[in-house]
Design a protein around this nucleic acid. Structure first.
Lengths: 153, 153
DNA sequence: GAACAATCAGTAAATTTTTCTGAATATGGA
DNA sequence: TCCATATTCAGAAAAATTTACTGATTGTTC
C-alpha cells in the first residue's frame, strides 16, 4: 500500500503554507482537476498526515509580545515525579509548548505572555508552585527571526 | 475605534483550534447567525489579527521524528555579523524556528529531521559552515508533552 | 429625543465542496 | 502478450458554503 507520491507531497507542501486555497486553485498548480485533489486531501486527512487546520494569530496585535523559553530540571527523576510534572504543566494556559528533553535539562517550555512582569508573576505563582523543580533557567526572545509551522518535506 | 470585543475573541479562540469550521457552525456556538460571524472573520483577517491559515502535518508520519533544539552563541556581535547570521539561517530548510535571544545565548533554533545521523550531517555540512559561530549546544526532544499553535487570549 | 453609527438577521447569487460515474492508465499474473 | 484487476483521473450534478446586499434593531452621542 504505497501511500504518498510526489503529488501528495506537493499538496501537503501547499496546505501547510496556506490552507485556505480551494481545491481548484491547488489543482491548477498541479495541472489536475479538482476531483483528484479533493480525493487526495480527504485521504491525507483520514490517514492522519494532516492533523488539523488552524488559524495563526498575530501575537503582538493580541497583546502577547513576550516569548520566554524556560529550561527546567527536576530534582528527582522517578517515573511518578515526571508524570506529575507533565500533568501540571498541561494545566498552564500560558505554556504553548512543552518537551521532555535528553540531557542535563529535563523540560523545555515556550511561553507567551503580556509582559516581563507577567512572566515574573507566572513563575512566582504558577511554575514555582510545581513541586520537584530543581533548576529553572529563563531566556527571552528579543526578535523572532524566522518561524513557521511547516516542515520540510 | 474599539476593535476586539468578546465575540471577536471567541471567534479567534475557535479558529486557532479548528479553522475548518463553517461560519454557520461558529455562529451556532455564539448564538448568532452566519452574517455577523462572516463579517467579523473577514475584518479580523483584514486587520491582521489572523495572519494566515495552515494545515498542521504529522511529523512522525512524514518521517521527521527528530526534533533538536540548538543554542548558538556568536563569536563577534557587530551588527553586520548578526544580520549575516540571520540571513544564512533563513536559508536552511531544516530550521523551523529561529529566535534572537537575550542573555548569554544569542540564537535559539528548532530543527526537524529524519534521524540523529541527519542532525550530525546538518551540523557538519550546514550549521558549522556559517561563519562566526562561537558556541553551539544541542538538545534533543525525547517526547512532545504538549504543543499547540494557539495562544491564550 | 433625534441623528448617527454599529451590529445583526435574512435573502439570494456565486462559488466551493461533495458525491457519483465512467474513461484512461498502470499493475500483476498466467 | 494478453487479460483481469486496481488506481487515478476528468467531468457532471447536487449539496453546502461563501459572499454580497438589504433593511431592521440596537446603542451612542450630542
Amino acid at each position: 500500500m504505497e501511500l504518498l507520491d510526489e503529488t501528495d507531497l506537493k499538496i501537503l507542501r501547499i496546505l501547510q503554507e496556506n490552507a485556505k486555497l480551494t481545491t481548484k486553485e491547488i489543482a491548477d498548480q498541479l495541472h489536475l482537476t479538482a476531483s483528484p485533489v479533493y480525493e487526495r486531501v480527504r485521504r491525507l486527512e483520514k490517514k492522519g498526515y494532516i492533523k488539523n487546520y488552524v488559524a495563526i494569530l498575530d501575537k503582538k496585535k493580541l497583546n502577547r509580545p513576550v516569548t520566554a523559553i524556560c529550561m527546567v530540571s527536576l530534582r528527582y527523576h522517578n517515573e511518578g515525579f515526571i508524570d506529575t510534572f507533565e500533568r501540571q504543566i498541561k494545566e498552564l494556559v500560558e505554556v504553548q509548548e512543552c518537551y521532555h528533553m535528553a540531557g542535563k535539562v529535563d523540560f523545555f517550555l515556550k511561553i507567551h505572555l503580556e509582559s516581563l512582569e507577567m512572566y515574573h508573576e507566572f513563575v512566582r505563582s504558577k511554575l514555582s508552585k510545581i513541586a520537584n523543580i530543581g533548576v529553572l533557567e529563563s531566556y527571552f526572545v528579543l526578535k523572532e527571526i524566522y518561524a513557521t509551522t511547516a516542515i520540510d518535506i
